[in-house]
Design a protein around this nucleic acid. Sequence first.
DNA 1: AGTTAGCTGTTACAAATTTCACAGCGTTAA
DNA 2: TTAACGCTGTGAAATTTGTAACAGCTAACT
Lengths: 213, 213
Amino acid sequence: MNASDKVIGRLSHYRLLLSKLESQGKTFVFSRELAIMADGTSAQVRRDLMVTGYEGNPKQGYNVSDLLDELNKFFNFSRGVNAVLIGTGSLGRALLSYFMPKKSRYNIMAAFDSELSKTGRIIAGTRCCHINELEFELKSLGSVVAILTLPAEAAQTMATRLTNCGIKGILNFAPVRLRVPDDVYVENIDVTMSLEKVAFFANQKSEDREKEV
Amino acid sequence: MNASDKVIGRLSHYRLLLSKLESQGKTFVFSRELAIMADGTSAQVRRDLMVTGYEGNPKQGYNVSDLLDELNKFFNFSRGVNAVLIGTGSLGRALLSYFMPKKSRYNIMAAFDSELSKTGRIIAGTRCCHINELEFELKSLGSVVAILTLPAEAAQTMATRLTNCGIKGILNFAPVRLRVPDDVYVENIDVTMSLEKVAFFANQKSEDREKEV
DNA sequence: AGTTAGCTGTTACAAATTTCACAGCGTTAA
DNA sequence: TTAACGCTGTGAAATTTGTAACAGCTAACT
């Protein structure tokens, strides 16, 4: 099975929508309804769901709970998602509170920082270790993904260290494209770039409006 | 001129790379070099740069400063990017420090929150107003984009309020697809979805590796 | 001045992604 | 039981996005 990046992103979104619907007590949902919530088309929803193998019912649509189970199986998150976070600057700390350990399926097992003043503490329920202990800690943690919230200059070095430890997935907030082996997946979130995109298109839309008048 | 979302994103990235190169004293750069830094191909770089109209030199490549100027002109950020931020939770505050007012070209003019306890203060150099003052404040601020860092439940209501005020661009961190008029651009950053993508592909890559053996 | 090497700009091609369209099916209603 | 409706699953078309290839040019060298 090979699904593209985009399909996986949307499936994750459908998963979220379905869990909302389930908690609202809805038992069946049509592709069209999901499409509206996900800002897509019904054909796209159906096509995306094909990769999971789950089949809907021509009259009732999709069974919310069953499809949700199927997606959870598909994502294979039975034991939740385990991660480590590197860099406890303001963004790193914000993510630690965001994924605060409790009912969430996302567990940040440990945070790391190079500044001694920040280590040895608990931040938002997560223990913060010195970066020197990275390799040692990762050995006992097993399979995890890494969240990189550190300055651009330090990101590549850290990515290399992480891949050397066998890390296969990195969520990178540093505005740098990381060079990693083929068997490692990197997802970039570049807030500045996104903001510039928004500003650009906002500008453009304003200008379009002016022209029309 | 109509450039796609993706092209604009990459141009923004080139802009960042060029400003780094300029500060390093590099005067000329080849499409191939930019491609390596941006994790793309040289053809794509050249193709992307076509939309700006700037032309390079077949022997020396692109003049770093000139191309940077051209891109700044293209993005029309001469007076910087002005934004307001809605929601001063942990993520909102992290972004306020990230875009801390100083040499940055990104100015968060004001932050808003519905909790009275958080308003009337200065957070990371940005004054925080009560959400009731949104419409009033926006009038005096002129053209800005909005950054939404608030709970999913509140996002749609706020998006509607913002578009009613004439906002044309929204950077949305809430895990909801916003319904806005056609002349408003929305860029979504969904950290949870991105993390799930990373976890999924990391899983897959690990499995692929096991099969090969 | 003429030649050469190698990069750019751009067109043509290829791949990926989305949308269309419709056969087939399951439920409902008569 | 049968008929009808309307949704799903999916092959095929359309669109979008990325890649390849090459003519043309410019600096450097003879």
